[in-house]
Design a protein around this nucleic acid. Sequence first.
RNA 1: GCCCGGGUGGCGGAAUUGGUAGACGCAGCAGACUUAAAAUCUGCCGGCCUUAUGGCUGUACCGGUUCGAGUCCGGUCCUGGGCACCA
Length: 818
Amino acid sequence: MIEESYNPQAVEAEAQNYWQEQKTFRVTEEPGREKFYCLSMFPYPSGRLHIGHVRNYTIGDVIARYQRMLGKNVLQPMGWDAFGLPAENAAIKNNVPPAHWTYDNISHMRSQLQRIGFGYDWGREIATCRPEYYRWEQWLFTKLFEKGLAYKKNATVNWDPVDQTVLANEQVVDGRGWRSDALVERRDISQWFLKITAYAEELLNELDNMDGWPEAVRTMQRNWIGRSEGLEVEFAIPGQEQGLRIYTTRPDTLMGVSFMAVAAEHPLAVEAAKDNPELTAFLEECQRILVSEANMETMEKKGMPTGRTVIHPITGEHIPVWVANFVLMSYGTGAVMAVPGHDQRDYEFAHKYGLPIIQVIAPADNGQTIDLDQQAFTDKGVLVNSAQFSGLSSAAAFDAIADFLASQGKGERRVNYRLRDWGVSRQRYWGAPIPIINCQECGAVAVPESDLPVVLPENIEFQGVMSPIKQMPEFYQTTCPRCGGPAERETDTFDTFMESSWYYARYACPDDEQHMLDERASYWLPVDQYIGGIEHAILHLLYARFYHKLIRDAGLIDSAEPFTRLLTQGMVLKDGAKMSKSKGNTVDPQELIDRYGADTVRLFAMYAAPPDQSLEWSDTGVAGSYRFLGRLWSFATQYNQAIRQAPVEPNWTQATKTLRSQRRQIHQTLDQALFDFSRHQFNTVVSASMIILNTLREVEGNDLADALRREGMSILLRLLSPIAPHITHVLWQALGYERVIIDAPWPTPDPAALVRDSLTLVVQVNGKVRGQIEVSADAEKAAIEETALTEPNVQRFVTDRTIRKIIVVPNKLVNIVC
RNA sequence: GCCCGGGUGGCGGAAUUGGUAGACGCAGCAGACUUAAAAUCUGCCGGCCUUAUGGCUGUACCGGUUCGAGUCCGGUCCUGGGCACCA
């Protein structure tokens, strides 16, 4: 039996009950069967799903269901990126412990995901705030600490002097604390770092092989890693053993150095300021600039001489050393050689302070003129005014100067990266505790494996903004694992990017209480298809790649990269702008699901745009998707009996020409849709489904017509089932097809249906369409040309003209050139 | 400034990768059913000309390659994104 009208709520409950009872999406390892691991980026449990989640997870679910229908053993898990600042903010605001708030949100969002019918293996659900999860993160960290890949150093943070706490960059608004409104200060505190720079070369090189990733993401990562080749050169300091070391990528300009510039934190600057109050004041001014200062570019370039000089390694000249606010202590050596003639920034600085501008490079191309009164000449070229190096090209000079300095012990080649080590300490409460104990005698000591996890107390109260565990002696007072003396735990927690860097691996074995990962991870990894927002193109995806290599080098897995293919879905827009609460242009997916059902929402999300492009939300478009499902339903209702009774393998050769042509169109459309599925262009798959239904609705008659309805519907339902899984499940049952749709074989076009005995060709004259001709499929080229020339409208354009050439494109067109 | 994407009807977007531009849908217009409305169904729908057959024009702009260009090449303009005192 089948209901007369489409009732999505009832239909969707029926399908979901079936999947739940049958445990349809539970999977286990089946060696020998092809696996497919499909993963969407897990959500932060903010409270409720937004439309971006729905789009992301629908794309993932469509791919997972498609791969499953192709016969693969498909894993599609889901979990929660559960640590993070919003839970603390909510806790402070509503006086609810972050754990409580988080678990409530998870439970609501889980039921929302289930209502949309995503085919997740819920038996593998992970919440990163659970000790069973983060204990392994703590464990790995202690291993990295032993290997020297985790280390401690001072780093600058935003300090709120009123709330007496560290602020995240986003908590600093216009240089003031978001709650206290106090002017934020810079403060250096000791923090933990992971040595991602040790993997910079591999992280960069591997990108060349990752052809399953969008080029845009690979480029962004390459730029972020920022490899450069240059020279580290030492300028001697008179009367001192250690000289001033600088890094340059342009050693060919070395003879044009007119001053040196060092960062405010550079030891030479600090030392020179000791007897110079003016310089001390300048260094302090530089210190006051916020860590979060976004627009360094607009900052005025300022400097001050230190009164010191260094010796040029080739000419032996004395070069003055300046402190400059644009030199970064964290890149290279914190000091640069300044060549105003050939570097625009040095040029502006030299102009401002009246320093000499010397030309040492001339254009290689004689036609090019330069004017050092206007701007620096930054291209490469030929060396001039450079003593024994004059006349060399920039490239040759690089080598010659590198060799010369190396022979003198004054310089060596060096590769530098823009990438910095990953600071993982956060002075927050709602995160995984860093498993380190600080002992007065032994220093930083890792918590022994037998004492893990270091559990974050969940039953706490916020007194102000500061992390509660920083005020809990029962948490931090402990004894040193090494000497047994009194000691204190770290009260900082991990950056939440730590949890999201390896969750994809833990889904393989979420219940293993003895190991971080076991052999099941080797079966499932790497992830075959990863889906998420482009906003994670750099940080999350780079950290996860780094972590994968750490796990590999710990011997837990053998693959080099975590995600074979990556799909970055576009943004969801409304009225041409990104949806946001402040713009008031948000759409609540729950309301849409209540009104139209999940299939309509899924269908529209797939139909409105290709997955990787931005999607313009349209309320009338959603209604249109609902109408299509309604037409599908009423067609099935109308022909229910006929389809059930129609022959499964009719003799199509007996069909009328019209019917054969309609059948051909259905199979052709299927063929195109299969191609579109394989390239993840789901919007045209939906189009194809609509075309098939439109064709079926034009079919007239009984018997063979019913057979075509039967065949056409079985194709249409299966094609659409990854996108609209509920309605297709119920209609498949109602129309009496074999098995359940999710276990049915994927449709393939019947080659016999695609065969045509005559073809329609377009006829062009000089590239313009002038008519169409009907020729038999096996017609010779000469016969086609002859038929084309007899077409009446074509004749109008070729009479009285000499035909110079006729081009015949098989199955497509004829072009007559005259 | 450097590095990636994009510019196609009123709108979202197709075009099997050099072969009928505008599939499919949204909006709109006209009609059928209805006392009426909604829902549903049918037809039309880039612009200009034409009774129609049909013609001209058209994929940001200029030029090129080709029998043939939305697609390839050179230049220009606009636009979205990423990076940016990185020495």
